[in-house]
Design a protein around this nucleic acid. Structure first.
Lengths: 337, 337
DNA sequence: CTGTTAGCGCTTTCAT
DNA sequence: ATGAAAGCGCTAACAG
């Protein structure tokens, strides 16, 4: 059994109130008494019971992170930063993986509520996710990271400026001289997937990209879908000179498949990704992509959530931070020949 | 403010004790009363305050996972399974990343203790880690996963049979006809690194592997170290016909570097890894390796820890489970030419 | 079958 | 400067 305030108080010959005061650095304690108590605390290696404390303070100093899949390098990178920043501010992180299942998500939300988390970070929500929408309308602060809920629901969000990112990619490909640029979209159930497609369609004309419908394909999480998309594309009369995948995960698959088909990258065809997951920079891959500033965003997510918890940030004016994406040119893109 | 037992009790016209009984499925409540209460709970969407409950029950139903780096695919894979299995048993997971820093580790341990976690899983400990050793001797159950603390300290452990794994790899290379097999060891600060090297040295004779000292090189987490090792190896008069790296992370680097130097894999040189991280099976990599059963081990880790928490497993007889590793033959190994 | 009550370990008024 | 006491939301005797 661990020591309690009572133990420290009894052994120091004072009341628990006084011990509580010194633990919390409150004023109004005689210096000698304070030192005596501190000595005792050190001696016994006393540790506060945060749960008991929470009962009075209504603060658990824990934040709940809900992610679709921690195995996804994008999220594990974010989780690492979130955990670190949270800990620096004396918060601990509890995590849940939804595996993109709504029912799991709901279960996790409830479990976290029961644990009285001070705030939630979602790094996984789909567009129109009613569980999250309900939560957003509850009194506990919720911040969406990377993917948002769409227009209908007011919520706090830290993410990347997708329009800017698509523009950056198109500008790069266009300036290399590409006109027949294929696009493989991600799942449109997520804001990122939907927006990247939308902005591609919206911006391609500006950059002089060919508007042939066949150049747009739908990908997604299942490799098979991306695979089929690539097949379709490479079977076209006029094959694209560049393939732009809406995320690195798909881009990697594209890269592999195109190589398998005997094309050289980037000599015969350029491949462009999006996100800049760690693997993209791996020396045997070297994928050109858009860096969405994962860790920077994760850092801001924690900061903003804690401000919300502390009531520093106003809750009426939703947080909405869009980070500047950066173009990362590696060796999967080059001028068409 | 969320509802409490009092609210439900008042609104149902019963006492809090009765409500508590129905919530915990305790017998001795009139069916009608029970149903009335259940209705009220549903209607208000009442959720128990786990913290308050913990004060009485001395159980928080949370387990602390401490990992070196959640970004490492090995650990994120494990974390995913651990979170899932824990949740299935009504536990939540709180996580901490040490980044291999002892002081961070100590900080995390204390934070978790203050949160009254019911048990710890370490997936990151070094040999002779005094913080963990102390913790192991405290009353709260601690289970080491993947890496253990070495012989001096009795503790619960779930890992892989490293001797068997090395034997499997050597048998594979040997049966392909390799004799000049180089070995790049991992950091010996960890049980895995130390043991794999030890078993390689111990077993190579059995498999007819050349015992030239130059074939043993030291690698580690810094890419530069592995890089230098490969350079040394390929500068030898008799270059090895196969390079066996003590983990996939290094093997990937070896693969890249050897390819860069103009060798073909596996025609000119075979490369073998260890661990079978997800990336090893990536279609553009196809690394032959040893599968250490990450998820199976993670699953067992949770089960065993919970048994320990529940006092089902005896605490005097330490858990020590060594899973059977499996040989995974992909396309980075072939007979020497 | 149901209610009363005493804490779990802590913070925080309010007295002294 | 210090202590007594109430109470956070819950469980678990104990009484009735």
């Amino acid at each position: 059994m661990a020591y309690t305030l009572h133990d420290i108080a009894a052994l120091s010959g004072v009341s628990i109130a006084t011990v509580s005061r010194v633990i919390n650095g409150k004023p109004g304690v005689n210096t000698e008494t304070r030192e005596k108590i501190i000595r005792k605390i050190k001696e016994l290696d006393y540790q506060v019971n945060f749960n008991a404390k929470s009962m009075k303070t209504r603060r658990t100093n824990t934040i709940g992170l809900i992610t679709a899949d921690i195995t996804n390098p994008f999220y594990s990178e974010a989780a690492k930063t979130i955990e670190f920043q949270a800990r620096k501010q004396n918060y601990t992180l509890i995590v849940g993986n939804t595996g993109n299942s709504m029912s799991e998500e709901q279960t996790i939300i409830r479990a976290f509520q029961q644990r009285q988390v001070d705030g939630f970070i979602f790094a996984s929500s789909a567009l129109r996710d009613s569980a999250v929408e309900n939560l957003v309308n509850s009194p506990v602060p919720v911040l969406l990271y990377h993917r948002h809920l769409g227009g209908q629901c007011r919520h706090h969000f830290v993410g990347s400026d997708e329009r800017k990112g698509i523009a950056l990619a198109l500008e790069h490909l266009s300036s290399l001289g590409h006109r027949r640029v294929a696009f493989i979209s991600g799942s449109r159930k997520f804001s990122t997937g939907a927006e990247r497609l939308r902005f591609f369609l919206e911006l391609r004309r500006t950059y002089g990209i060919d508007e042939t419908p066949h150049l747009i394909q739908e990908g997604g999480y299942e490799i098979a879908k991306t695979s089929r998309a690539v097949e379709q594309l490479m079977r076209l009369q006029h094959t694209p000179t560049a393939i732009f995948a809406a995320n690195d995960f798909m881009a990697l698959q594209v890269l592999h498949q195109v190589l398998e088909l005997g094309y050289r990258v980037p000599e015969d065809i350029s491949v462009m990704g999006y996100d800049d997951i760690p693997l993209a920079s791996h020396n045997s891959i070297q994928l050109s992509t858009i860096d969405v500033q994962i860790t920077h965003g994760a850092h801001l997510a924690v900061m903003n959530l804690i401000n919300l918890i502390d009531g520093i940030a106003s809750d009426t004016q939703p947080v909405r931070m869009l980070l500047e994406p950066k173009l990362v040119i590696r060796s999967s893109t080059a001028p068409p020949t």
